[in-house]
Amino acid sequence: MNKKKTQLRKHRPTAEQWRFMLIFGLPPLLLFTFFTVVPMIQAAYTSLFDYSGYGDMTWVGLDNYRTILTDSVFHQAVINDVLILIFKTIIVLVLSVLFAVSITRLRFKKAETNFLRFIYYLPNILSVVVIAKVWKYFFDLELFSVVSGLETPENGWVGTYPLPIITFVASWCGVGAFMIILIAAINNIPKERYEAAELDGAGQFRQLFNITLPAVLPQIRYIAITIITSLVPSNMNFVKLFIGEAESSGFMVMGLYEYNNAFTYYKLGYANAAAVLLMFIVLILSYTLNYGITRKERQ
């Protein structure tokens, strides 16, 4: 009887706890709902209308979605995003694994390791505006041509090769933080495993593929998912900063497609339909990846 009573009391907040929750818990909850959930519902709702963002709304059903799915500009945007995603993931994973393995296995002095960690992490803290502008000037002022000895193409480097340049700069920004995560993971692998492998005569590459990589699979999944979820904003930032209004150069990514339709062409309903589609694409990508890697982990 007594026990039951204490159990009961445990699951009912005291007056003071109620006050704490009302003062501190409720405002963030309401603001959060208002800033994320409500706009999402509203986006889904207005995507069914022909709406400029000002004035009247006309019901068009799924027409916005139909138009987007047949729009060749949108196709190109999806292709660009997916290409950047693939190359960026490969570059970032290969480089961060290479750097993390080298730093942990080369037995650098502590000062040297710390120096490299300090430098490698720098691009992660710098503003995307500064990074994009510095690299843009590096290419636009023809300094790249001087360094590489190549001739500048007619439209300039950024105008001619937007995809490789944006992929490179975006990967350049990401490697440092992921390398630090991998270094911590590699340092957690029991040393005995490497010793045993060494005794069995396994070379460096066998050790890498049979010990290190399987052990850091959770970290690799984290990196890949982070890349996917940050892909749309990151691409949008870079394209906007590198190319400006991307329409003229014909280089488009999904985030900017949505943004331009809302703010340049005043087609808010249409833009929101694009946002809903985009959300599905990102969710599907991250779930498939998550599922794939989790299955591999279990094996």
């Binding site: 959060f32 749309v232 703010f263 985009l278 959300m279």
Partner: peptide
């Protein structure tokens, strides 16, 4: 605070974590 409704709000926050924030910029 392990009360039942708190658990519900916990789920609520974590499900929203899946929504890529930038996509909400235009509607917001």
């Amino acid at each position: 605070y392990d009360f039942k409704f708190v658990k519900f709000f916990e789920k609520y926050y974590f499900v929203s974590m899946m929504i890529p924030g930038m996509l909400l910029l235009v509607p917001l």
